[in-house]
Design a protein around this nucleic acid. Structure first.
Lengths: 168, 168
DNA sequence: TGAATATACTAGGACATCCAACGTTTGGTG
DNA sequence: CACCAAACGTTGGATGTCCTAGTATATTCA
């Protein structure tokens, strides 16, 4: 699993693409494959950092989102929209967080369809601690060269806007 | 699930980070979150394109890798190393591809521990067709701005090298 | 007002990924 | 030559994601 190869397998795939006459798609294929692999590496680091807290990244994201909510609570459909995942993924995450005593479900006062999620005291504490750990262990030194972080934010921001994630 | 937000939720998260005094980690957090989301968008497009062929991206990657192998066959541990996924993921993919008649397992002639994977004729045909579909539907127009593809390859290549993916 | 439509959440299933543990085969070492 | 550590693949379990379908509640409109 964690063996270092002598050559970049993605660059190798790009060469294969070019040799087969798919030169117009080769570079994009390489970029997309690199995004896939980078996501995998980063996710593994994040999960390792969160493991001591009993959290996964999916659950952490929800916890962090709730900790920034002004009212301290959020409808499940809002969480689904903001985290940009399927509603059933939110249900799954809330189930586990609730079982761990970190959040609680409550009925919406006026709309009987919606369920509100709210942090418990334990949830709020864990959100702070795990965020500090992620900042220290991953975000403050992610391994990108200087200046590249801003490039990534720009490039991927444009891509996500093109993909319809947001208007702005 | 596919609702367009008025504002970029990742930029919003970055602002939250900065307001809480985590300015040194805010930009990296935003870049990493953007990578996660971009991967999700691209994977969804790829899976949609592959669905008519009865393939998932994981199975396609293995199929494509085999189609480039000189001998037409590859040990499972090689596939695991080149695709950079856990050996059990290869076992899973080969199980399904074999059941679909696209690949076959065979014993290594000299080393009794290793298993070789080989494309069937049907597998080779499907690899070609699905690659053409991906090139046409995703890779040839991925939605990145001009010049950004090369930037991505450079930035993510450096990251992966730092992460120990390859020497080069 | 009452029926049709839309929205919100949940249940069940398919798929992929990882980890831990296991059995088999190799190959180096005493 | 025998033994044991290492390598290889598989099984079983946990997690997350998505999809489809179903139930309950709101909203719209005839």
């Amino acid at each position: 699993m964690d063996t270092s190869l002598s050559r970049d397998p993605i660059a190798e795939a790009q060469r294969n693409w070019e040799e087969h006459g798919w030169g117009d798609a080769a570079a994009s294929m390489a970029a997309i494959t690199a995004i896939m692999r980078t996501q995998q590496i980063l996710l593994a680091r994040i999960e390792t950092t969160l493991k001591p807290f009993g959290l996964t990244f999916a659950r952490y994201e929800l916890l962090a989102l709730l900790s920034f909510a002004r009212k301290g609570s959020l409808p499940m459909n809002k969480a689904s929209a903001l985290l940009q995942v399927h509603p059933t993924s939110i249900t799954n995450a809330v189930d586990r967080l609730e079982r761990a005593g970190l959040v609680e479900r409550s009925r919406h006062p006026t709309d009987g369809r919606t369920t509100l999620i709210e942090l418990t005291a334990a949830g709020r504490t864990l959100a702070k601690r795990s965020t500090a750990a992620l900042n220290a262990g991953v975000f403050s030194a992610p391994g990108f060269d200087a200046g590249d972080v801003d490039q990534l934010i720009r490039i991927l921001g444009a891509f996500r806007r093109n993909a319809g994630d947001f208007q702005d």
